[in-house]
Design a protein around this nucleic acid. Structure first.
Lengths: 141, 141
DNA sequence: AATGCATTTGATACAGTGTATCATTTTAGT
DNA sequence: ACTAAAATGATACACTGTATCAAATGCATT
């Protein structure tokens, strides 16, 4: 059967991973979430989608998707189990190897441009990136 | 006494917070760390600096420093207690209000330039930002 | 369609992190 | 020095993410 897969499911398969019920359920939960979702919410949604999916598989899948740059865990509000990064001048840029966790620092200039430049200069293979600004919204200033 | 304070300690005070032993110990631990450090390592270093500092104060201070954009928790490697962010095209940009945790999405263009533009257009007050790329380093490609 | 095998799974029990609570201490302005 | 407000430390707890491993499953091949 040549089922039409979601782009993300296709990406999973292309990377050599099996499309299991657990993984598809997590993907569905993420896609239905609107873009921002906690692990607790993923667990809840997945349980509704397929209650036979185990807790461990959900976390395993989230890690897998993170490694593929399909999702990225981030801190909204309070902190839990982080690696703290000093922001010397109010900002910081780095590449994290998703395989060996090495951190390679560099100076900022462009964005899409710098990605290509970094891939060429450092021999890295970039699959995604995240830019976050911090501060106060108009309701809180 | 007009002690010379570290820039970060000054920032803390300027924001209206008291300079306690616990906070100074955490700052020192962070500054001695080289820039990347886990909470467990902070706890260890702080214990060496001043063993009377309690566990709770360390976490409180880390949250405080995060709110001031002095540090920023991030995931290096595996995940713990995250808010998962979908990366539609392999990347994503947003502002997180450190007070009410609201997320405001926007499209990327510059970097320092876009920060100023966002402050003007959205009425937000930005104190810092973080740009992360994901992928494989040259040893792992 | 059936087979075979590496991958993945789910259940459980556990380790560790971050938090709530609150009486006591400390900071810093007067 | 005095004082009020802010912050602390100790403890006990809730909860998250993980290790383990026998059983199940995806999927390439026949």
């Amino acid at each position: 059967m040549t089922d039409s897969l979601s782009p993300r499911a296709q990406k999973l398969r292309d990377a050599g991973h099996k499309l299991t019920n657990a993984r598809l359920a997590v993907l569905q939960a993420l896609e239905e979430s609107g873009g921002h979702i906690t692990s607790a919410e993923v667990l809840g949604r997945v349980d509704e989608i397929d209650s036979s999916v185990g807790r461990a598989s959900v976390f395993r899948t989230l890690d897998l998707l993170t490694g593929l740059a399909i999702i990225r865990p981030t801190y909204i509000g309070t902190s839990m189990t982080p690696t703290y990064v000093l922001l010397p001048e109010g900002h910081h840029h780095h590449i994290i190897c998703t395989n060996c966790n090495r951190v390679i620092e560099f100076d900022e200039c462009g964005l899409e441009a710098i990605a290509a430049e970094l891939e060429h200069r450092l021999g890295v293979r970039l699959t995604g990136h995240l830019l976050e600004f911090y501060g106060l919204c108009d309701q809180c200033v």
